Simulated scan of single mutants.
Amino acid sequence: MTEMDVGSEFTWDDQVAVRSVHFHDPAAPAATTVTPSVFVAVHDEQGRFLLVQRRDSGAWEFPGGRMDVGETAMAAAVRETAEEAGVRVRITGLVGLFSDPAFVIRAVDGRIRQPFVVCFHAVAEWGSPRPDEIETSDAGWFEPEQIETMTLEPGACRWIHHAIAGSGEPHLE
Rank of each mutant, 00 (worst) to 15 (best):
V108K: 03
T149V: 05
A28R: 00
V118G: 01
V40W: 09
E135Y: 07
S128Y: 08
V16N: 13
H162W: 08
A59W: 02
H121D: 08
S37C: 11
I160G: 05
D13F: 06
G65C: 10
I160Y: 09
T2K: 13
I112V: 15
V42A: 06
A124Q: 11
V42Y: 02
G96W: 00
T136C: 10
L97V: 12
G93R: 13
I147P: 01
V118A: 03
V16P: 08
F98C: 10
E3P: 05
S167A: 15
L172T: 07
V78M: 14
G166I: 05
S99D: 15
P63A: 12
M4T: 03
R158V: 12
E61I: 01
E133Y: 13
V87R: 08
G140Q: 05
D13R: 07
V118K: 11
E135S: 11
F39W: 06
G168A: 12
G127Y: 14
L51V: 03
F23L: 01
W126P: 00
R19Y: 06
G65V: 15
V16Y: 14
V40N: 13
G70H: 07
W60M: 05
D68E: 07
T32Q: 14
E84F: 11
P63D: 15
P170F: 11
Q46F: 00
G155L: 04
P101F: 08
A17T: 05
R54S: 08
G140R: 02
A28E: 08
W126D: 14
R106N: 09
H121R: 14
V89L: 07
W12P: 00
T149A: 04
Q114F: 02
D138L: 02
R48K: 10
M74C: 10
Q15M: 07
M67W: 14
R106Q: 15
R158A: 14
T72H: 07
P36T: 03
P101Y: 08
P154N: 04
V123A: 11
A77M: 12
D109H: 14
D13H: 07
T151N: 01
H121W: 11
D56C: 01
R48M: 04
P144S: 06
F98V: 14
A31Y: 14
A102P: 06
G58P: 03
D100K: 15
E135V: 06
L94S: 10
Q15I: 10
H121P: 06
W141L: 06
I134M: 05
D68W: 10
T32M: 13
T136M: 07
M67T: 12
A107V: 00
S99K: 04
E148M: 02
E133A: 07
M74P: 04
A102L: 06
F23H: 01
G70P: 09
P115H: 12
A41G: 10
V117C: 06
I105H: 02
G110T: 03
I91S: 15
I134H: 09
P170E: 15
L152M: 01
E84K: 15
A163G: 13
P63I: 09
F142A: 03
G93E: 14
S20Q: 08
D132P: 10
H22I: 05
R79M: 11
S128G: 08
V16C: 09
I160R: 10
V42W: 02
A163H: 08
V21M: 00
I134D: 15
E3C: 11
V117I: 11
T81V: 10
A30D: 04
F23W: 00
I164D: 07
F120S: 13
V104I: 04
S137L: 08
P115F: 12
R48P: 12
D132V: 11
A73F: 14
